[in-house]
Amino acid sequence: MQKYRFVVDVQYKSNVRDPRGEMIKRVLNDEYDIPVTSLRLGKSIHLEIEAENEGDAMKLVSKACEKLLVNTVTETYEVRRI
């Protein structure tokens, strides 16, 4: 068994509203004069997993995402090995 480390980047789907991101963007625009044109707030989950090989590890991470980490109704995710 080997240990593999991943980052899961979770974001709202592009057609789902992100009021938090919108508010923060607005404050940056209006109060700090920083011309941010788009801002979406997500989650980044760092995890370490034990598996026989990288392929298996990746499968387990995907399972974790689909089962719990990600609300697949409203969110999408990307997994990166680190």
Partner: peptide, 11 residues
């Protein structure tokens, strides 16, 4: 049809 509204309590 799927139709999701997201709440914005601050607004």
């Amino acid at each position: 049809k799927l139709s999701i509204q997201v709440g914005d309590p601050f607004a």
